[in-house]
Design a protein around this nucleic acid. Structure first.
Lengths: 218, 218
DNA sequence: AAATAAATTTAGCCTTACCTAAAAAATTGA
DNA sequence: TCAATTTTTTAGGTAAGGCTAAATTTATTT
């Protein structure tokens, strides 16, 4: 079994690898883990010792197969718990993260799989992120950032990139939620802001917003 | 907030205080915590420092009011999660303890209270133990040990004292479960074994068993 | 009331996962 | 290219929560 800290490192490496499709630097990992690079070096050595990552001095880390499947399992638990909190316990999508961060470390295969069944094998969490199944398989997103669409393009809002409380509450306030049909009306060259239409309502949204919303077109 | 270890100590002290209705000795606590007396002394000092227990050297510990309410909160969470596991996730009553030991440490008031609501404010856990409400109040048992009944006495089986996997599985094997009507037919002076009737079936049970089953009479 | 036994505490050490400061390697750019 | 900067690692230290062994206090017997 892995310690709490080891699990958090594995998850962080997984997220960074996925986001940047490359090995993970010590500094980037320190940033993600809110800790110092020297602490990262220590832990990375430990993970390398256990063959959960491949590590060569000064060259960053990559998850090994074993490390990846451990990370995916944690992500699976995290996202299942998020679904549980929203669907069964009346949490809103901006409240789930902190609690799921704790619940993801509960060790019980039966618990995870029964929870999955209880929730009817959900495919995505409340932020639109895919939930790995019991074998660690999950669909890779086929969607693009709203910012990449052109005037006239239409699509369904399927996920958020940033899932901070602030961003999620901004979306709530503007009645933007997953599953909604979005149409791009106009794009402003100057500040890259956009006019979009949701439910017949026109919104003006900044570039920061449009680069954090995933849209599925066609 | 309290550390994992602090929480476990508070809970252990609470259980020992309740069981023996007295202050808790260092050795008893070490036994309960599966650790060494010297480690207990260290932690007890730390808890005393934080005013969660009253402690005088060589004289054992007692929970302070603050310590007690922290302990009760942990017990509340533990028992609520047990109900959840049995009622929603198909766990049997001998499987829940280990997982609930982990879940009881999740920190989120909203989670606890919403879980309570979701489960419809259960009063007892799967082993018959009372569940504290959000204010820390819970009913004190008005029941007695099966071993204390006399031939001819009848009652309902309402709880188990020992909730080890072995004992619970023994009960399952013998179709003894909570809510069942039990009648004492005979008591053997020699080994204190008993003949009892459950659902028209006669069982012969040893003293060890009868001192671990709670019965509500009248 | 000693003497012995049992319980408890103290002292000093270990591991995990952090930290700071300094050294070393890699990268950048003049 | 080679000096300056940035990144990473190393060295040595800290706090939490364990441990063993030794010292001390309390309890039990004779």
């Amino acid at each position: 079994m892995f310690s709490l800290s080891e699990e958090n490192y594995l998850k962080a490496i997984f997220h960074l690898e996925t986001a940047y499709k490359s090995g993970v630097s010590t500094n980037a990992l320190a940033e993600e883990m809110q800790t110092k690079p020297s602490s990262v070096t220590d832990m990375v050595k430990k993970l390398a010792e256990k063959e959960l990552v491949n590590y060569k001095k000064y060259q960053g880390v990559k998850l090994s197969e074993e490390g990846k499947s451990a990370a995916v399992e944690i992500v699976r638990k995290h996202r299942l718990w998020e679904v549980f909190l929203v669907e069964k316990l009346n949490f809103s999508w901006d409240e789930v993260h902190e609690v799921a961060e704790q619940l993801e470390h509960i060790k019980s295969e039966k618990l995870t799989n029964e929870l999955d069944k209880f929730l009817n094998y959900p495919k995505r969490d409340p932020h639109g992120d895919p939930i790995p199944d019991a074998n660690g398989n999950f669909s890779v997103a086929n969607h693009q950032l709203l910012a990449e669409l052109k005037p006239g393009d239409k699509g369904i809002c399927v996920g958020v990139k940033d899932s901070s409380v602030e961003f999620l509450q901004y979306l709530d306030k503007n009645r933007i939620s997953l599953g909604r049909q979005i149409e791009v009306l106009e794009k402003e060259d100057f500040d890259k802001s956009m006019q979009i239409k949701i439910d017949e309502v026109t919104h003006n949204i900044s570039h920061v917003i449009s680069t954090n919303l995933y849209i599925k077109t066609n």
